[in-house]
Write a protein that binds this DNA or RNA. Structure first.
Lengths: 348, 348
DNA sequence: TTGTATGCGTTATCAA
DNA sequence: TTGATAACGCATACAA
């Protein structure tokens, strides 16, 4: 049983290979008579024809594969959404996603970049699992490339700008911080603590800025004493929250850098006999359901748009690959972070 | 600049394409003179030759791609480890992993299986993110296939047995349940509650069995009243634990079906004024660091060997693909679940 | 509007 | 021990 190829379809339809190819690929130039076209389509259908991707690839010099290389797929709960988004977009355009991992190890990264080349992927999505500033590896310089949840060290372009360089998408940390804080001011809170982290990443400065903007918008004075930094873990959040809540003029609400720190803040509140949300309102960040749904009361949190970012990156890369004209419409995007309301916020 | 291929290497080395192919692929039959061999290797090196995978694939009818199709990559924190393990194994043998997703939707699954065929992957890893009993889709029946974290509905073979069917790997739920319970009996606990879930999955029955075995091994009587089932969420764990802990002869230790339920148990204990581990010892399952490290005190938990299972599945599939003799050595494996000790267990 | 013929870069068959 | 050469299945320049 000879595997059915374009040749068999041609025979079945009583036409030549060329015609079949034209019909099946919707070649723009040469036209095919509608009747012939129909015949070919039917024949292909009847025979259950599936194009041989290897042969096609050899000929077109395109594999239809997108490489997704990321720093640490294993240890973060975000990875899934990021990858799934990219996968969905790729799938919709007939591409497949091939995974690569650097494990945050330069040696491994080197090896993976080599593999990326060996496998001859058509384009690359360079992803980080936490919003980071990265310098694009030299090996990726002259390839179709999109940055996912990462921004290039030499970035400067404005939102929606062409920017000229490599497209990238990151969460809008500033707007996210604003959203979280506004939820609190909207509930009448006037003393709002910010339990933040100590790392020098875009999220740290961005969310702080959003916090300040929201305060200003509500006519509130920014008080540096209400901002406490610590490790972005549960125990860091505990320490910071405890410090804030033990003050005489304790805040009535806490905006926490992430859900882990919020988890620590819950413990601090419990130890001090403070009820949530009755005595203290709390807003987290990241919307990690393991935490937000696990805590009691369930935690209101700002979600990171991982799926959407992944999807955008996939779409964008396909655009770059498929578009004849390379007039990149948008090369940089910050995505909004939606608020997910639960039960940890109440009016003062 | 013509891309360098086997032809260029041949010219550079002053030999024929055939010879180059022979030495580069270590063809077992035809021997090449050591000196010639050296010359070819050097030429390839000097030119930085990289084989064209599409051409090779077209010829060998093998893509070097393994399809990893899973039910829900997005929503679970396990996915990363599972995928990473498989990816690592694949990588080590020169294969790449291509991702597919069913989203637990039969329609999508249908489409993805089709894609799997279109992309002509050499083999398939069918993975579920929670240990499940599955029936292998018809479309996968006659392909190189390995089940990951899933067991076929018609399974019957013994560990290490050839089994004849498709290879699969799952966690050893029984041993895991035993491990968790033994940690408690070893600390002198004699009244050990089991906060379990209501779903009919292998983990439910397996862990219960392990619990019973450990009790028996410690010479303790199994008391059905100490086993409470509820939804495997934080609030379910809360309810079940609360019920157990309010009894007059409350247990001094709790084995929880998973970390989420343990999280709820923590809350129940706190509300009842019970200190952990002073008044109550707790062991969880899954070792989800977001929870185990977030809780206070940090939760002792039994870890699911996701990375190892992924790795095994990858290795196994490659074996099936590469091995000339198809005498499958092992077709079924249950992996041990190691205990991760933290601070939630103390002697009575 | 449709058909013929060539080549993409390898591997494998056969001959030398 | 090495070298010519024929597929692999498809897309396309060119001819009809």
């Amino acid at each position: 049983m000879a595997r059915i190829g374009i040749r068999q379809v041609a025979a079945e339809a009583g036409v030549s290979m060329t015609t079949v190819s034209h019909v099946l690929n919707d070649v723009p130039n040469a036209q095919v008579r509608a009747e012939t076209r129909e015949r070919v389509l039917l024949a292909a259908q009847r025979l259950g024809y599936t194009p041989n991707r290897m042969a096609r690839s050899l000929r077109t010099r395109r594999t239809g594969a997108l490489g997704l290389i990321s720093d640490s797929i294993a240890t973060t709960p975000y990875a899934g959404q990021l990858i799934l988004g990219a996968q969905r977009a790729a799938q919709e355009h007939g591409y497949m996603i091939v995974l690569f991992n650097t494990e945050d190890d330069p040696v491994v990264e080197e090896r993976e970049l080599q593999a990326l080349t060996d496998y001859q992927v058509d384009g690359v999505i360079y992803a980080t699992m936490y919003h980071r500033v990265v310098s694009v590896p030299q090996a990726l310089a002259n390839r179709p490339l999109v940055l996912l949840d990462a921004e290039p060290a030499d970035a400067q372009a404005v939102d929606g700008d062409k920017g000229g360089g490599v497209p990238w998408v990151v969460p809008d940390e500033v707007a996210g911080g604003r959203t979280a804080t506004e939820e609190l001011t909207a509930n009448g809170h006037r003393r709002i603590g910010f339990v933040t982290n100590v790392d020098d990443v875009p999220a740290t400065s961005g969310r702080l800025q959003g916090y300040q903007e929201a305060l200003a918008a509500a006519g509130l004075q920014f008080d540096p004493a209400l901002v406490i930094s610590d490790e972005s873990e549960s125990w860091g959040g505990y320490r910071a929250a405890r410090f804030l809540l033990e003050r005489g003029d304790r805040p009535t609400a806490l905006f926490c850098y992430n859900d882990r720190m919020a988890m620590g803040a819950y413990r601090a509140a419990a130890e001090l006999g403070l009820r949530i949300p009755g005595d203290l309102s709390v807003v987290g960040f990241d919307d990690q359901e393991l935490i937000t749904l696990g805590l009691y009361p369930e935690l209101t949190s700002v979600a990171l748009p991982h799926f959407d970012m992944g999807y955008w990156a996939g779409e964008r890369l396909v655009e770059v690959l498929d578009d004849t004209d390379q007039s990149a419409p948008v090369s940089r995007l910050t995505m909004p972070c939606p608020l997910v309301r639960r039960s940890s916020v109440a009016p003062v």
